[in-house]
């Protein structure tokens, strides 16, 4: 009798362990939207250009009306109501990872449609683009310059300054020349390496201390 009890207890204990581990594994919280590429893959994807489309090209596609591009307005519904680019649909940037939109995006991706993101400025669209890229969508483009830039760019199609395109990271000034024009001794300042920044060693968090 005693022997049997011991066996039972052992069995019950191991079954309990198994059940606890199993439920733990099953209910393990997984983020809703998974990253499709590692951080290093993302960095490499950033290096490839061609993810930006010019306002003029967007306009051409709209005029052709061939449905090859789908415009997405990332601004708030209020701003969208006031004015937006013709056929654009409104998905506020905060909502781009909602389930219904994601399903829609993968649907369009299967149909080889390209979506063009624009926001109030290029940085906003770029943020959304990076999130979607990391979530595994490769069928998105960023419109250069943002919403405010579209109308002047399209209206002044022949303007040489505009047709050269807009590049968010293009210097607006020759920084050195501007500094020199204000009498700064630039040449020496630029040649000399900037002061080395002292790197303060991270203080290790002390492990549990104390005790008697």
């Amino acid at each position: 009798m005693k022997e049997l009890n011991r066996t039972d207890r052992l069995t019950i204990a191991s079954i309990l362990v198994a059940v606890i581990l199993f439920t733990g594994l099953v209910t393990l919280k997984q983020p809703e939207v998974q990253y499709a590429c590692t951080i290093d893959e993302t960095v490499n994807k950033l290096g490839a250009s061609g993810d930006v489309i010019s306002a003029v090209d967007v306009n051409k596609a709209l005029l052709n009306n061939d449905g090859s591009l789908i415009l997405v307005d990332l601004r708030s519904p209020d701003e969208y109501q006031k004015s937006h680019i013709g056929p654009a649909i409104n998905i506020p940037i905060q909502e781009i990872l909602e389930k219904q939109h994601l399903e829609n995006f993968s649907d369009l991706s299967r149909k080889n449609k390209t979506l063009v993101l624009y926001g109030k400025d290029q940085t906003e669209a770029n943020g959304a683009w990076m999130i979607l890229k990391q979530a595994g969508f490769d069928n998105f483009l960023v419109m250069e310059g943002g919403y405010g830039y579209f109308a002047p760019a399209v209206n002044e199609n022949n303007n040489s300054a505009v047709s050269q395109g807009y590049y968010a990271e293009k210097p607006a000034y020759n920084f050195k020349e501007v500094l020199e024009s204000f009498g700064a001794p630039v040449s020496s300042q630029a040649a000399a390496n900037p002061e080395p920044v002292k790197v303060i060693k991270k203080v290790k968090k002390s492990a549990a201390e104390g005790g008697c």
């Binding site: 951080i39 960095v43 290029q122 770029n126 968010a168 990271e169 293009k170 210097p171 991270k202």
Partner: peptide, 25 residues
Amino acid sequence: QEGIDYIFYSTGDVLADQAWILCKR
């Protein structure tokens, strides 16, 4: 490093924002 604010900059703010997003991840 704790206690230090790092401020990213580039020519515009798109490149800096990309770096910022990578680090935030």
